[in-house]
Amino acid sequence: MLAVKTDKLVKCYGKFKAVDDLNLHVEKGEIYGLLGPNGAGKTTAIKVLSGLIKKTSGTAKVLDIEVPNKLVSGNVGYMPQETAAYIGLTVHQNIEFFGKLFGLDKEHIAKREKELLEFIDLTDWRDELVQNLSGGMKHRVSLACALIHEPDILFLDEPTVGVDPKLRIKFWKFFTKMKENGTTVIITTHYMDEARRCDRVGFMRQGKLIAEGVPEVLMKETGTDSLEDAFLKYADIERPPVRPGVK
């Protein structure tokens, strides 16, 4: 069973096709990066997969269940691009609230909260209102809320924006650890150095997946030494999605 599978997925806003014929196959326990410029359709694709918006046509399955479906929501963690934490609540109250939404008991929430606060380096800020935190700190709270229930699949939309480089490294170590525990991570990012840490990446442009594969293979195939250059090469080629190494 694939963690995520889409076939000919289309999402339109009026006449505009934000996601166009997307065929995405993500294995369980994989870190999959969606790369592309603004407006490429990465966020829309993640929103459809998280069950936030309805698709226009095609299929979109998460853990073999067609989304949107509340059955799958309990196994999914979603961190949107916006801070999306309750600024009028403290860090603790935010984490506790999301824990309760996922049906965790008090003890479980307390244990996870302690771990997560250490991980996001906000233990000393536990009882501070989120509105008083810096942008990067708010982002970290948002990440903690997505992780509270140890989801099987984690959708992260630009999770490291506004996070200092030192903490970004820490984030990625954590994502790798989650992958080792069997969690599937689907991530969108602008940072190409980060994208190289993914098991596989998919290049998106104008709603379409123009290429996907292991970062090193994509670079090798295009004869480039960065994913950014590789993306530009693929973006110039008018042809169906290229999957180097896949016969």
């Binding site: 069950g51 949107p80 999306a84 939404l101 996922f102």
Partner: peptide, 14 residues
């Protein structure tokens, strides 16, 4: 506007 509504709707909350 802040995205919290979308976020909670991605949880089991109805």
């Amino acid at each position: 506007v802040s995205g919290t509504l979308s976020r909670v709707l991605a949880t089991p909350l109805t």
